[in-house]
């Protein structure tokens, strides 16, 4: 299963990154969502898989019954999921605002502040 999940992780990264490189703003956002999922799954898979067995202590016991899944990556992923959600939500709102301000969802059109062809005369050379 590790092999299959590792492959899945790779595919999530690849597809997320591919979408990130598109011109459509929406696709960029979708790509980010895929990447976040990919990263979480990466932590989960890399830390080792244990079928069933959540890290819970049965009532009345004092330690969970071995073998149980490693709780540490789970805690990390939980934090990461939530953070990812926050960023995702903001990114979506930002994309929406970008669209509203520029009237376009083509990322390539968003270079009015950086266009190097807009340049003033040379300064400092005495010209």
């Amino acid at each position: 299963m590790e092999l299959l999940l590792a492959l899945t992780v790779g595919i999530l990264y690849a597809s997320g990154l591919y979408l990130l490189l598109r011109r459509s703003l929406v696709k960029v956002i979708v790509g980010l969502a895929l990447l976040t999922n990919g990263a979480n799954l990466l932590i989960f898979t890399a830390a080792g898989l244990v079928r069933g067995r959540p890290p819970l202590v049965e009532a009345g016991e004092s330690v969970p019954q071995a073998p149980f899944a490693d709780p540490v990556p789970q805690a990390l992923i939980l934090t990461a999921i939530v953070i990812g959600f926050g960023l995702q939500a903001f990114a979506m709102a930002l994309a929406y605002r970008v669209y509203r301000e520029s009237g376009s969802e083509d990322v390539d059109s968003l270079r009015t502040t950086e266009d190097p062809s807009i340049n003033l005369p040379k300064v400092g050379t005495g010209e």
Partner: peptide
């Protein structure tokens, strides 16, 4: 679902 099947119900 992956989380669910691999012992991470909270996740």
């Amino acid at each position: 679902l992956v989380y669910a099947f691999f012992g991470a119900p909270d996740l």
